[in-house]
Structures are given as structure tokens and as C-alpha cells.
Design a protein around this nucleic acid. Structure first.
Length: 394
RNA sequence: GCUGGGGUGGCGGAGUGGUCAAUCGCAACAGACUGUAAAUCUGUCGCCCGAAAGGGCUGCCCAGGUUCGAAUCCUGGUCCCAGCACCA
């Protein structure tokens, strides 16, 4: 048993599977050959979230070992619509939405990858080659694969079996993604396990068209012990570029089940489930700190942790760093109208409800009467519910 | 193109003339309890007036209509779905 080096780490930690085999890829890596490694991202949403970080961290490891890393933005394929993991067909995005999303990806990925300096990551767009391909060329490409190879995909089988639609664009999608590998002439592709089928199509095309063995690395999807995806729950995306305070708080609001997988897949630390069970709170704070630091700076992580302790644990709003509301913005005849004028509530009805539920407090004293105004002064601390709080300033 | 079915609140999905601001489930929110959570329990969950009781307004794809009264009936439009047909 030899000491783990960077290559061992690269090939073992946070990896689901390597095709055709870990041994073959390791032999390549140890030979000193520089590989072309890529991962594709279809800009179907505005944000890269911590779920994406698992694979991007792998890319970074390749980059650090001196390999050429390509961050591929699937602006063409995003318009087509990848059927991966979808039991029902996805609504198609417009060209504009896709471009808008793509623009933000570089900054977000920059939290992990290096786009400048020595051996920078290269950004490519697959519209470069897919956009100029004509129908005859495309159909010729389809000649390299058979209907049987594509239809065998589990998800397609499932749809057919259940009598659901399988649109032709979805059926043809794997061919396009597979062609990306050929166009960029890559040696390795990384992606989530849900991408395995598409990536294997690329492997097939590479063998036929370039007589080359493309390696495929799958990384696990970031899920908690129950198999729920982490970081992407509807309306609660943990984005890589979230403000440090928000980011830290969002990690803290994950269930305990998420702690171990997050440590394993998003940090270099290995923590046993036993250890976590002994003190989940401490470990979750540790995790939130490590991740906040990873995507920001150590100081910002420390500050985020301090803010969390003050606001959430100690409920010491006086010392916490709260959003400020100018005294001059307050107007209204009643406390409800005043809160509405500050934007701390959505409607008067909501405000009345919250007050009736004892969810509003000013300077630690809960508000009981919604019909009278409050004489606000600079320095007042308003807390609405458990997430909204603000400080009045002159 | 034909035939049939359907568009209800963030989502799923009831309701087919009044008792419907609209059953129920999920999600969300608040309070209690906690270790931040989760779980659990309780409550809330269109807008506006009212301390409250209560009242008003808007609302069930869009536009008209019938009716004392419509999410519910009629006409037109529009979008979606299923089956069938067509496929040089």
C-alpha cells in the first residue's frame, strides 16, 4: 500500500465509476501524457449550484496536474433539450434564455476553476460546431449509431413502456452531445451519473470516427441519505456565487443526512458518519465554514459563521449585521402599513396574520397590536418571522 | 384534418347553477419544541376595511351572453391532451 498521491486522489475520491477502467486511465496519467479533459454544462438555468461543484472539483484536479481542461458550454444542446433524468419532456428554452444563462457560468465556475495564468481552463461553446452543421452532415453522423443503441436507454424504455411521449429531439440529443467529444478531440469526459448514457455515446463516436479510446468518469449526484438531490430543491438553490452569509445559512439549513455526502464530495476531508452523529451541529458548521471558505475567502467564511451564530443561534440581532432601512422610508398610519412601506411584508393581510401569530418583534418585544403605529427611531431592530430582520438607520 | 377529452390557487387535484375565496394532498409561512435544521404538534396560507364580530372587492384560459345568481349553462376564440386519418 503506497502513499496516496494526487493521482490516487483524483481517481478515487468522489468518483462513481471510470470507463473503460480505472487502471487504464491511471496508466495514462502516470505516463506523463497531457490529456484533454472536458465537462459540458447545458445552460438551462441561471446558476451553477453546489451539485455542479462535485464534477467541477474533479476538473480542477486535472487542471492542477497540468492537463488541458475544457469547460464546455452547451449553448446549442441546451436549446435542444437533454432528456437525462426527466420522466417527462422538458420545455424548450429560447436562444435568449440560454445565452443569458451561459454568460454567468464563467464567473460561477471561476469559484473553482482557474481561467487565467498558467494552463488556464478553456471555454468552448458547442454551437461553434453544432450550429454550422447542416442536415446532411447530421444525418450522416446518425449513421454511426443504431436505433437499437439509442432506444436501449433505460429512460427511453420507461417512457415508451408507460405510453409517454418521446420526442425526436430527445432521441437525437445523445448524438449531438456525443459529437462534442469528436469536435474537441478530447481524451476524458466528466459528468454526473445521469450523464452516463450521453457520455458513452461520445465514447462510441470517438472510437469510430477518431479511433481513440475516450475515458468517461462519472461522479455521484449530490444527494442526502434519502436520495434527495441537494442544492437544487425548487426555489432553494445553493448557488456557488451566493453571498457568503446566505451561502453559509443555506448549508446550515440542510438536513443532517446531507453532512456526510457533502464532506465526501465537496471537500478533501473524510468524516465518518459515526463522528457526525456524535455532534451533527458542530460538523455541519464545520462543513458550512469549509464550503464558504472554498468558494470565497477564509475571512468571509469566518464572518459568515459569526453572523450565523449571532442571528440564528444566539438571536442577538443587536450585534448582527442586518440589512439597513432608512427611517425616512417609513410611512403609514399603522405598524402594518409601516412594515409594508419597508417591504418587510408582502401585503397588509400578511402583516396582520404574522402579528397575530406573534411573528413580529421590535427590539425583542413582540408586537401584539397591528392597528397602531410604532414610533420608529434609528437603531431599532425589526424581526419578521425567522428569516427576515432589519435595522432602522437615520 | 376528423373525433373525443380538457384548461381551477406555487404544484397535483376536487367541485359541474347558489351554502365556493373554492374539499383534499404537497409545497410554503408562523408558533411551540430543538442542536441551525429535520421530525412532531398547533395554526395560517387572494386582496382590502374592521379591535373583533363581520363586511367588501377581485378570482377558477380569454371575450361575450343566459340567469336574481356561474368555476359550473350557452356562443365565439385560444391553448393542451388522447385516438384516428393523412404523409407527394
Amino acid at each position: 500500500m503506497h502513499h496516496m498521491d494526487a493521482i490516487d486522489l483524483l481517481l478515487s475520491q468522489g468518483i462513481e465509476e471510470i470507463y473503460p477502467s480505472k487502471q487504464k486511465l491511471e496508466a495514462f496519467l502516470r505516463s506523463g501524457k497531457k490529456l484533454r479533459v472536458y465537462q459540458g454544462f447545458d445552460p438551462t438555468g441561471p446558476q451553477l449550484h453546489i451539485g455542479h461543484a462535485v464534477a467541477i472539483r474533479k476538473l480542477r484536479q486535472f487542471q492542477d496536474l497540468g492537463h488541458h481542461v475544457i469547460f464546455l458550454i452547451g449553448d446549442a444542446t441546451a436549446v435542444i433539450g437533454d432528456p437525462s433524468g426527466k420522466t417527462t419532456a422538458r420545455k424548450l428554452l429560447t436562444r435568449e434564455e440560454v445565452i443569458k444563462n451561459a454568460e454567468q457560468y464563467k464567473e460561477q465556475a471561476g469559484k473553482i476553476l482557474r481561467f487565467d495564468g498558467e494552463n488556464p481552463v478553456e471555454i468552448l461553446y458547442n454551437s461553434t460546431w453544432l450550429g454550422s452543421m447542416n442536415a446532411v452532415e447530421f444525418v450522416s453522423l446518425a449513421h454511426y449509431l443504431t436505433y437499437q443503441q439509442v432506444i436501449e436507454r433505460d429512460m427511453f424504455q420507461k417512457r415508451v413502456k408507460e405510453g409517454q411521449e418521446l420526442y425526436m429531439n430527445e432521441f437525437l440529443y445523445p448524438i449531438l452531445q456525443g459529437y462534442d467529444s469528436v469536435a474537441m478531440d478530447v481524451d476524458v469526459e466528466i459528468g454526473g451519473t445521469d450523464q452516463l448514457f450521453n457520455m458513452m455515446m461520445g465514447r462510441k463516436l470517438m472510437r469510430i470516427m477518431k479511433q481513440k479510446e475516450k475515458f468517461v468518469i462519472t461522479v455521484p449526484l449530490l444527494t442526502d441519505a434519502k436520495g434527495n438531490k441537494i442544492g437544487k430543491t425548487e426555489g432553494n438553490v445553493i448557488g456557488l456565487t451566493d453571498q457568503p452569509n446566505d451561502f453559509y445559512a443555506k448549508i446550515m439549513s440542510l438536513g443532517d443526512d446531507a453532512i456526510a455526502p457533502c464532506f465526501h464530495l465537496l471537500t478533501d476531508q473524510l468524516v465518518s458518519a459515526d463522528n457526525i452523529r456524535k455532534d451533527p451541529l458542530a460538523w455541519k458548521k464545520r462543513l458550512a465554514f469549509e464550503l464558504t471558505k472554498q468558494f470565497n475567502t477564509e475571512n468571509e467564511a469566518k464572518e459568515a459563521q459569526r453572523q450565523f451564530e449571532l442571528r440564528v443561534q444566539e438571536k442577538n440581532f443587536l450585534a448582527a449585521d442586518l440589512p439597513e432601512y432608512p427611517l425616512s422610508h417609513i410611512s403609514g398610519e399603522t405598524i402594518v402599513e409601516q412594515l409594508l412601506s419597508l417591504g418587510l411584508i408582502e401585503s397588509k393581510s400578511e402583516g396582520k396574520r404574522l402579528i397575530a401569530q406573534r411573528a413580529v418583534s421590535i427590539n425583542n418585544a413582540s408586537v401584539s397590536n397591528h392597528a397602531t403605529p410604532h414610533a420608529f427611531k434609528s437603531g431599532d431592530i425589526i424581526v419578521v418571522g425567522k428569516k427576515k430582520a432589519g435595522k432602522i438607520v437615520a
